[in-house]
């Protein structure tokens, strides 16, 4: 134990501003997320990523679906679109294509949760990945439907408890990394909210890389998931990540499956160069122009 020494007295300062404040709709903060929830961490990493990319609030649009993560778009200063449950990606596809017509370097980021993107929105996810539409899709995976009170979702580990699985979830969950990779995404990464710096780096890469880029963020949900699964606080869940996560860049996406009490492999799994939707489309339009 360190010897107790006199604590340094802080300076009291007035009118302080968070360094990333310009990215936040500060008039809407503090946000609604629970103590220990990782969404605030994901949001600060996003803001930090945008700042390091020197992307201003007007260079980016954020699209989100319904759920706790869905509220994130509303807390960011950029043009933000809080769409219907599961439909963030098709909305963003339309938005991104329209922007390509008059502001092609405008970034469109989809920020949503595991239920929104992979249960009701799953069909849209795999098709957008197949098309390699130029979107950065960031999924905050907290293993349950938090907003609606802790129901199990498509990523809830086998045997984990939720309000709709009081005896333990008896379904095999998705391996989101494997799903994204097999659908054709040229960039797939997974980090937890513990790995803030690498998460921010992954977001930067995903935002800048053309095509359908995917980042999974494993994030604590103490009040609804953790509480029912022996992780009563965000801190306990973060410690779990600390003990279970293993950084293995370019591991086989198949191995990224999260088994109960098993390893959580994090890192960049896929980072390929591949013509994106607009490259292919432009080629066909040029061909059409020649034929006339």
């Amino acid at each position: 134990m360190r010897k107790i020494k006199t604590k340094p007295t802080p300076e009291i300062v007035e009118d302080v501003h968070h360094p990333l404040e310009r990215y936040f709709r500060k008039e809407r903060l503090p946000h609604i997320w629970c103590p220990g929830c990782g969404l605030g961490t994901a949001m600060s990493c996003l803001a930090y990523a945008l700042e390091e990319l020197s992307l201003g609030v007007d260079d980016v649009s954020i699209v989100s679906g319904i759920g706790c993560t869905g509220r994130l778009a509303g807390y960011m200063r950029s043009d933000s679109y809080h769409t219907t449950h599961g439909r963030a990606i098709p909305f963003a596809t339309g938005l991104r294509i329209a922007m390509e017509m008059h502001k092609p370097d405008h970034k469109v980021i989809v920020f949503s949760g595991d239920g929104d993107l992979f249960a009701i929105g799953g069909n849209h996810f795999i098709h957008a990945a197949r098309r390699n539409v130029d979107l950065a899709v960031i999924c905050v995976n907290n293993f349950n439907y938090g907003m609606t009170g802790g129901q199990v979702g498509p990523t809830t580990p086998l045997g984990a408890f939720g309000t709709t699985a009081p005896y333990g979830s008896f379904e095999n969950p998705f391996n989101l990394v494997y799903l994204a990779a097999s659908s054709g995404a040229p960039y797939v990464a997974r980090w937890t909210t513990l790995h803030t710096r690498r998460l921010k780096q992954a977001m930067m890469e995903a935002i800048m890389k053309p095509g359908f880029t995917f980042v999974e963020i494993i994030s604590p949900c103490p009040v609804n998931y953790g509480r029912r699964n022996k992780m009563p606080t965000g801190l306990v869940e973060m410690r779990y990540y600390q003990s279970k996560s293993v950084i293995r860049n370019f591991a086989d996406p198949k191995d990224a499956e999260i088994k109960p009490e098993g390893e959580i492999i994090v890192g960049t799994f896929i980072d390929e160069d591949k013509p994106d939707y607009f490259d292919i489309y432009r080629h066909f339009v040029e061909q059409m122009n020649q034929e006339k």
Partner: peptide
């Protein structure tokens, strides 16, 4: 690190 991880933007570094 504290600035990045804080979910409530209550701590930061300059």
């Amino acid at each position: 690190y504290c600035q990045l991880v804080c979910p409530d933007f209550a701590i930061w570094s300059e």
